[in-house]
Design a protein around this nucleic acid. Structure first.
Lengths: 202, 202
DNA sequence: ACCTGAACACCGTTCAAGT
DNA sequence: ACCTGAACACCGTTCAAGT
């Protein structure tokens, strides 16, 4: 709760200022500390001003999650681009995936949190999540076309890959791995190696 | 919120009555609907009576999670026992794992929710979670001793297995798989098959 | 059109007081 | 020892009122 701010310097883009403030609070103090009052204070605006720009708190969270998926996709694309052209890019993407989750745990929770069926009511969020998953899906498809991965529905295989890294991220984030805090990286490496073997065409 | 109940029929075991009520509310109405007032009403007791038996709401949730891990372990043990002696038990255990999560989504969320480091402050919860994971760990170890799975640290391999099923459960629970609601079972089967290939000794 | 301020209906938690 | 009831400090959300 910082000082009240000069009041009324926000004219055109309160929405993006609120979104940015919410993003900051979530990153800095966690999802439980995200309060509409706090976000308002942070921008220097009343707590109910937010309702002019978002339907409710859930809509604000959905917007945060949408931005999260955008950054997430970029991280995956960067890892994919950095991998050698003729190598299996999955280990690098898996590492980037888990690293994103561990670097942005609160965002990751909002992105994959209990949005349940509500996800369908936020088309932007839905589309951005789909794009992020598409990076993984395309990588799997390409490895299939090269004859490296086994044939079969690429969507299903990509779901398997996704589940594995999502699971590692979840367990590591909650400290549920009975290993030191630095255990996620070698585990991710092993997991990618095991999965690569399992997916290999034979 | 049922009728106020006859009041004061609870003498010896208010703690277990509260726990049972919390379990019921979570299962029936979800984790967000779990309210200390609601639990108290359900048992016919004041909302602050709970503090005689639990330190706070988190302690109540920890107790629910502990019971959840007990049932979870039993489900895994049952699947293991039902599998043919000479076959890889992992597909059956994976199916049981995901099925438990999908049948008890709110419990699963409490069990693997954002307990973070707080998990360490609930030794019973910690121990029960360890026992559940132990079932998986033992199965992996046994497959290694039979020469079916590759050699290496069984703990690490078990973590890979756990991550995969945990990830499937998480994505399926949140409806994040772009497939119909019945997609979890075939996906789990495929995942177990792929993982079995990857873990096979060669 | 956009924001404020008070109000409402909820929370978890505490604590003096009862039995 | 165990529970109650009122109180406290928080929430998200609504809405008449201001500009």
């Amino acid at each position: 709760v910082p000082a009240p701010a000069p009041r009324a310097y926000h004219h055109r883009n309160l929405r993006s200022a609120l979104l940015k403030a919410a993003d900051h609070v979530i990153r800095e103090r966690g999802i439980d500390a995200l309060t509409l009052r706090g976000v308002g204070d942070h921008v220097g605006v009343s707590r109910s001003a937010l309702y002019r720009h978002f339907k409710d708190k859930n809509a604000l969270l959905a917007a945060v999650a949408t931005e999260g998926f955008r950054a997430f996709r970029q991280a995956l694309e960067t890892a994919l681009a950095a991998a050698p052209q003729d190598a299996d890019p999955l280990p690098a993407m898996a590492a980037a995936y888990v690293q994103f989750a561990l670097s942005n745990p609160s965002h990751y929770r909002v992105m994959f949190g209990p949005f349940d069926e509500k996800l369908a009511s936020y088309p932007d969020l839905c589309a951005e999540a789909e794009r992020a998953f598409g990076v993984l899906l395309n990588a799997v498809r390409e490895q299939q076309e090269r004859g490296v991965f086994r044939p079969g529905d690429p969507l299903e295989l990509a779901h398997v890959v996704w589940s594995l890294v999502h699971g590692i991220a979840g367990l590591a984030m909650n400290g549920q791995l009975r290993l030191g805090p630095g255990a996620a990286e070698p585990l991710t490496r092993l997991a990618a190696q095991v999965l690569g073997e399992g997916l290999r065409a034979r």
